[in-house]
């Protein structure tokens, strides 16, 4: 068969797949999926499970300042939960040919993808709880979308389990963020400093605005249902309501007409991961993503550390 004929036939298979998806069909069996659809699910599942592994190295940076047993238990529980979810999603990813173990511990580190902030060490335990409040809130919107909309039903169920559990991180983060906000002037200042650093990462969590993108295949194949702008807005409304209740400063204002919060920070702008600051000068979205693709200060060291063992006097 000529390559043209092959392409035509492939196109026909994909068109038929898309028509069924468009008609609202849900799929139970992996054999029903077209090659392109499988590939999109493979990429989605791989990124989801690998990025949870990066939470391990990142959350470990919160141990040294976790002030008491309860705080250390919370860090352990976060690691257990995230790696448990990597494993749980890996069971699904495996069906699409993804080898999570290999990606995390053997393959070239450049294949490990995660959110840029997961490669910046956590400065202190207070920052850790603010991260839970702000960023687990973002992660929850992201995975909730898959649970609610994915046209491949087993993926929905996989995420239902994950989301069922992830809500706790945000509530834990909210509780202790509020606690430290009210605890002392010093802790309040630390919460504020954490919000200044973390809030813009929440805004950037959901990728480029919809109008700068061609319709992504994840949406075309109904792996996802929500656009980036929609999720960002849901995150923004929920975060701002929480921060406003605390009385914290954050770069957004309430629009009385629309009854909604809107950001007042330069969007987007670049961050300086060495100094935990944002430039406060607008750049283009391409510039932002180019900047973030370089990875954070923990890359590649943190991933190399997972492949190496340190014993004896290095420990204590």
């Amino acid at each position: 068969m000529s390559s043209d004929a092959q392409t035509t036939r492939d196109d026909a298979v994909e068109a038929a797949m898309l028509a069924r998806i468009e008609a609202g069909e849900m799929f139970e069996d992996i054999d029903e999926l077209s090659p392109r659809y499988r590939e999109i699910l493979r990429q989605t599942a791989e990124i989801a499970s690998i990025s949870e592994v990066s939470v391990l190295t990142w959350a470990c940076t919160a141990y040294p300042t976790a002030p008491d047993i309860g705080a250390k238990v919370a860090v352990c529980a976060t690691i257990l939960d995230e790696v448990g979810h990597a494993y749980h999603q890996g069971i699904l990813a495996e069906q699409f040919g993804v080898d999570v173990h290999s990606r995390a511990f053997k393959d070239d580190i450049k294949f490990i993808w995660t959110w840029p902030i997961m490669e910046v060490p956590i400065r202190n335990y207070i920052e850790f709880v603010v991260m839970q409040s702000m960023l687990d809130r973002a992660g929850l919107h992201w995975t909730k979308d898959l649970e609610l909309h994915c046209s491949y039903a087993p993926y929905r169920r996989t995420l239902r389990k994950v989301n069922f559990e992830e809500g706790f991180h945000m509530r834990h983060g909210n509780f202790w963020t509020e606690f430290y906000w009210n605890q002392s002037e010093e802790t309040r200042a630390m919460v504020q400093r954490s919000i200044d650093w973390i809030f813009p990462f929440g805004v950037m969590w959901f990728g480029k605005p919809d109008n700068l993108k061609t319709r992504p295949e994840q949406l075309k194949y109904k792996v996802r249902g929500w656009g980036n702008d929609f999720m960002r807005d849901k995150w923004l409304q929920s975060s701002c309501a929480f921060l406003n209740k605390l009385g914290a400063d954050f770069p957004a204002e309430f629009d009385e007409e629309t009854k909604k919060w809107r950001i007042t920070m330069p969007y987007p702008m670049k961050y300086d991961a060495e100094n935990y600051t944002w430039s406060q000068e607008q750049c283009t979205h391409d510039e932002y993503w180019q900047h973030s693709r370089k990875g954070g200060p923990m890359r590649p060291g943190a991933y190399e550390r997972l492949r190496r063992e340190e014993w004896g006097d290095k420990l204590w």
Binding site: P64, A66, T187
Partner: peptide, 9 residues
């Protein structure tokens, strides 16, 4: 450390 002491409940 200072950060741990500040965060003590």
């Amino acid at each position: 450390s200072e950060d741990a002491l500040i965060a003590r409940r």
